[in-house]
Design a protein around this nucleic acid. Structure first.
Lengths: 262, 262
DNA sequence: TCAAAAGTGTTCATGTTACACCCATGG
DNA sequence: CCATGGGTGTAACATGAACACTTTTGA
């Protein structure tokens, strides 16, 4: 939403287009070069940051909605996107903490006030999705009501609005648990990648270190990756070999519940 | 809902008490003696079976709602109950298949018709929860609109109404994945249990066999269970020893991500 | 004494961990 | 030639898998 008109239309007619009481919040993990970050936004007039999110259109599949919202923020489609939990227990989600004033701060930018019975003031449960992107590929889409964006290191997430800290925690837990069962590398590495690259990826996401030799052995033994004949030039150093994923084997390994417990 | 009056009140005023567009469906796994079953219900006038479910009250936490619904069906509280997915993609969940006639068949029992714009005809996403119970402990609560109940073996689930087959599949997958990370035994076994009992439990839930000796060794090594001095009399056979869970160690092992991969 | 169920230990194969030196490259 | 980063193998150890006979009990 980039124009005042769009925002006004959303405020006044959003309930006709979207399902009320339900939203989607996205924890967008951005990885690059040994750093794992999360995309945060700061709504107009807010001191705290929060997660990007959106609503589900009445004629839209849930998964579709999640992909649309993600694409609206990052301009990227076909990303790895995973539903992980529904949040409906915390005080914010019970409407025990009124978000109305919060909303009014934001929407004051377009000169509307959100009443107590407005659809945006109603109790809203939120479905959490997490995505994985290379944050260098992301060109964040500016929105009228969002004052600022930032990529924040996962270990340094500040206090967020609503229950978003809880959502981030759960997303991170789920990501780390699922890295063993999901083709996570596919989405964060180029088709051809070096061993140090995939090695750094796993170390960063899991927050611990792996022995280079054992790591390579494991991935090759499981047949998840295949070494190529090519090498990459990387400046004044020895050239690393390139590898690619063995898609068939990767799939098979995942089905067999293969564990990449290094 | 056991009286006509209650049902009428639900149909006419339910939207004031409950959040629209959202429901909870429960996959209630019932285990006993090497059998793993699911509780199914048959609504009045329906040919197919479906899962028990319910709605979230406007002033009720999500988890609270799930426990209430489960207690309404089984009369049991404090059960192991786990949220596992939100279903919002299938044709039923998009309102592409009209459930209105379906509803009318059911509610004809109390002599009301559900119109196209009735709140029960609107698009409804469903949050899936699974529970684990000993089905011998369950006294199913009769409800006016439910003609029949049954416990159906997980390997013999018939075609269900709506997208409930999909929900059951996902629940079973999740249960099997989580048995390694959740204190599942606690809820299905008495405080003191024999090794053959817990052994059968794992075999049944995971659908495969484990060597008795290795199974015992593993559980003892991980410190999940503790052997007691008592034995149980079981007729014309050797008396098995009793065991109990080592709660502290169980907790610790789960946090460490201990894997019971037998 | 028999049938049914439970108890128990060892061996072998596999997987996991720990560890250090040499090589290639460009400046 | 040097600084930097990448490549590689082996030995010790721990874990998992396979396997069968004996004991207890009550009828």
């Amino acid at each position: 939403m980039n124009t005042r008109q769009e925002v006004l239309d959303f405020v006044h007619h959003g309930h006709e287009r979207y399902l009320p009481h339900l939203s989607i919040d996205c924890v967008i993990f951005g990885y690059h070069a040994h750093q794992l970050k999360i995309l945060l936004i700061r709504h107009h007039g807010h001191d705290n940051w929060s997660l990007p999110g959106g609503y589900i259109a009445r004629d839209e599949a849930l998964t579709e909605a999640a992909h649309r919202i993600l694409a609206e923020k990052t301009q990227l489609s076909n990303l790895f996107l995973q539903q992980f939990y529904v949040f409906g227990d915390s005080a914010t989600r019970m409407n025990k903490i009124k978000t109305q004033e919060t909303h009014n701060t934001t929407y004051s930018k377009v000169g509307v006030a959100i009443g107590e019975n407005h659809w945006l003031s109603e109790r809203t449960l939120s479905i959490g999705y997490y995505a994985l992107v290379d944050y260098l590929n992301v060109v964040v889409n500016p929105e009228l009501l969002v004052d600022e964006y930032c990529w924040q290191e996962v270990s340094e997430i500040p206090t967020l609005d609503y229950d978003h800290n809880e959502i981030v925690q759960k997303a991170l837990m789920t990501l780390r648990a699922q890295i063993y069962q999901q083709p996570i590398g596919y989405n964060l590495l180029a088709d051809k990648f070096t061993l140090p690259e995939i090695h750094a990826l796993y170390e960063t996401i899991l927050g611990r270190q792996f022995d280079r030799r054992n790591f390579r052995k494991k991935l090759l033994t499981l047949g998840l990756i295949r070494q190529l004949d090519e090498q990459r030039k990387i400046g004044p150093h020895r050239s690393p070999y390139l590898y690619e994923f063995d898609r068939e084997n990767y799939q098979k390994a995942l089905e067999d519940g293969a564990v990449l417990a290094l």
